[in-house]
Amino acid sequence: MKNEKNIAILKEMAEKVRICMFNTLTDDGFHSRPMGTAKIEDDGSIWFFTNEYSPKSKEISKDNEVNLGYSDPSNNTYIYINGKAELVDDQTRKEAYFSPFVKAWFPEGADDPNLILIKVTPSVAEYWDSSSSKMVVAFQMLKAIVTGNTPDMGEHDKIKF
């Protein structure tokens, strides 16, 4: 039950941020790029659109371990996800998840022959969320300095899938 609740929290937080740093492995180390989240399903799987012939597609085909970093400093929300990626050619999902935002990269729409989906199946995720205002966060930090205690920075949890 806790896992379902945490997935729902994670889904809500990531959908608000929407853009993540999508990190793949190469022979030279990590390769990062910003990516817009197309869909997060109730099981926690995260979907993205990409070009089937892009470097990230080749990187995923070689080593499918990826990590995603979502960050919204204005709302003190941070999410880190490790998982496995796979390239999925599913026309029904392409049509369902396609948006005007994606059309900027794929003007032919969901029928673009180069369009493919990336499905990330998380193995572990960690999030930090302090929906408090900057003033409250600053007060908590000042209070911690004065009292010598750790500041209360909101919710933090680790989810194993």
Rank of each mutant, 00 (worst) to 15 (best):
residue 19 I to L: 09
residue 37 T to W: 03
residue 12 E to L: 10
residue 119 K to Y: 08
residue 73 P to G: 06
residue 72 D to Y: 11
residue 3 N to R: 13
residue 78 Y to M: 06
residue 53 Y to M: 12
residue 80 Y to D: 10
residue 3 N to T: 15
residue 53 Y to R: 10
residue 67 N to A: 09
residue 157 D to K: 10
residue 144 A to Y: 04
residue 60 I to F: 02
residue 43 D to M: 05
residue 41 E to Y: 09
residue 41 E to A: 14
residue 37 T to F: 01
residue 81 I to K: 01
residue 24 T to S: 04
residue 109 G to H: 06
residue 48 F to M: 05
residue 86 E to T: 00
residue 9 I to W: 09
residue 63 D to P: 02
residue 100 P to D: 12
residue 105 W to D: 09
residue 3 N to G: 08
residue 99 S to F: 13
residue 160 K to W: 06
residue 124 V to I: 14
residue 42 D to E: 12
residue 143 K to D: 00
residue 7 I to N: 00
residue 88 V to L: 12
residue 37 T to C: 12
residue 49 F to P: 03
residue 74 S to E: 14
residue 52 E to I: 14
residue 33 R to M: 11
residue 51 N to L: 06
residue 89 D to Y: 08
residue 79 I to E: 00
residue 20 C to M: 03
residue 158 K to L: 11
residue 154 G to D: 06
residue 147 T to Q: 11
residue 147 T to A: 09
residue 24 T to V: 07
residue 159 I to E: 03
residue 85 A to L: 02
residue 119 K to G: 05
residue 77 T to Q: 07
residue 46 I to T: 08
residue 25 L to R: 07
residue 142 L to D: 10
residue 129 D to Y: 13
residue 127 Y to H: 05
residue 108 E to A: 15
residue 148 G to A: 11
residue 66 V to C: 03
residue 23 N to M: 03
residue 140 Q to K: 14
residue 161 F to R: 00
residue 52 E to D: 09
residue 45 S to H: 03
residue 19 I to R: 05
residue 17 V to F: 06
residue 53 Y to L: 13
residue 156 H to M: 05
residue 118 I to G: 02
residue 17 V to N: 08
residue 54 S to Y: 04
residue 16 K to W: 10
residue 115 L to Y: 03
residue 114 N to C: 09
residue 39 K to L: 11
residue 148 G to R: 10
residue 115 L to F: 13
residue 99 S to I: 15
residue 42 D to F: 07
residue 131 S to N: 15
residue 10 L to N: 04
residue 64 N to V: 03
residue 69 G to V: 13
residue 80 Y to H: 11
residue 121 T to M: 01
residue 159 I to L: 14
residue 101 F to I: 13
residue 15 E to T: 15
residue 54 S to K: 04
residue 10 L to C: 09
residue 27 D to E: 14
residue 129 D to Q: 13
residue 31 H to R: 10
residue 103 K to H: 13
residue 13 M to E: 09
